[in-house]
Design a protein around this nucleic acid. Sequence first.
RNA 1: GCCCCCAUCGUCUAGAGGACUAGGACUCAAGCCUUUCAAGCUUGCUACAGGGGUUCGAAUCCCCUUGGGGGCACCA
Length: 504
Amino acid sequence: MMADKVRTRFAPSPTGTVHLGSLRTALFAWLWARHAEGDFVLRIEDTDTKRFDPDSVAGIMEGLRWLGLDWDEGPDIGGPFGPYTQSERGALYRDHAQRLLSSDKSYRCFCSPERLQRLRQEQRAAKRQPQYDGACRHLSHDESAARAAVGEPFTIRLRLPAQAQITFHDVIRGDITVAASTLQDPILVKSDGMAVYHLAAVVDDHRMHISHVLRGEEWIATAPYHVLLYEAFGWDTPAWVHLPVILNPDGKGKMSKRHQGERHLPVNVQDFMTAGVLPDAMFNFLSLLGWTPDASKELFTRQELIDRFELAMISPAAAKMPYAKLEWMNGEYVRRLSSQAFRSVSTPFLARAFGKSETAVDQMAGLDYVLPEIQTRVKTLREVAPWLSWAFKSAADMEYTPIDMLIGRQLDARQSAETLEVCQAMLEEAVPFEPKVLQALFRVAAQEQDMKLGSLLGPVRGAISGAKVSPPLFEMMAALGRRECQARIHRAHTALVAEDVARS
RNA sequence: GCCCCCAUCGUCUAGAGGACUAGGACUCAAGCCUUUCAAGCUUGCUACAGGGGUUCGAAUCCCCUUGGGGGCACCA
């Protein structure tokens, strides 16, 4: 046995993408390994061939890398205790099952799935706990061996020892005691010869020297089987750490997509990636979901989180996923980005939103005027594009409907048109065509017209952006350039005049 | 139905018997700032699920009730 080195693992089954709850489990396991300068292992649990999705392994790795969780051993990089994919470890499990069989700690069960299902139904109907009735428990060695030799299909079940109750220690919750009467001899090996999770996970965790098993609390109910298996093999158990589940925002059940309806709240790692959540923000946010390193603050660097992480400080209570807080935190991280960094992380989102190549977006020099302004206005990167739709159009594409967007506060259509005329005339004077110069000019104009700056700017904002709400005007204008601004104002003016005629 | 886990503001949480007139953050509301919308700053609202114990003293320990969650597969 190795020294008491901390070794944790993340052991997803490749049946889809990484779910929020799994991601948090992976993060905590990683934090604990890094905190203790131990190892973090990635293991793929694909013993269920029916549900296996070959593409999902890549997705899992992509998600972990995105969050910044690197693994020291895993299917792609190997390691001293490989292979790290359970489907490649079948012989090992069969060998261990055999050991249990020879020592009579397990037995062959010839019951068909149909019989078992019927049994469960009857028990449920009788309001009793669905449980294996132990039909094959006392088969003689000879009969068992003979039936197997003839080729009759069988599973292997663990023979639970006779004891009143089983107690194990959970790092977060303390001792948990379960009455043995609620347990049944669990299947270890399926009739196709493949190990079931319980066997595979226990054998692997032991062989891979996992010191702390972090997993969701949905595993508490089956933990006694694992403890009993360790006992049957004569091995020391790892420390058990059952993390609380993450609930839907409405508190109804575990986080899942089906509960979100039309709202499409992000649930899988990829959802958060496409929503434009920053990995650093997600890392910070997820760390604080169930754990508080310091009650007086919310924003922590990765290193601070690693340094302070403590398993025993994790809350045992399930939490409803606080999306609003994630958004807020992501906004904090967005605002802390340098202008350059913000531009580069936004580029892919802009390219996708406007159907352009990233290079094309990169070449739009004018964006540098407005992007820093947008940086304070978004919480996620996906929100950047809607602030910039005006930048990806030409004057000819501008549509001013409803027309109100061109009408200034306390002005009518005619007055708004006149305002545009004044501004139009002014644009030639703006040299260079920069936000500061434009601002100075417009302030003077507002004074001369005896108008509030806001009123004067209203129609121009509409003309330039095609909306009543937009990024700061002068930055937009500088981004577009003099010619384009003139063209838009002209077009808007025409629309206003037409409106004025229609109204009178 | 049975077993297990959990329970502080609307939400995420601090709190490990006295430092609690229960702290922070998000959300929400108001004000300031202001070029629309944000951001920023200031202020405000709101909680120990209920009932019994233990104790000089309980949000903190115990029990019951209630509520919520998880589990009860040849899935993980």
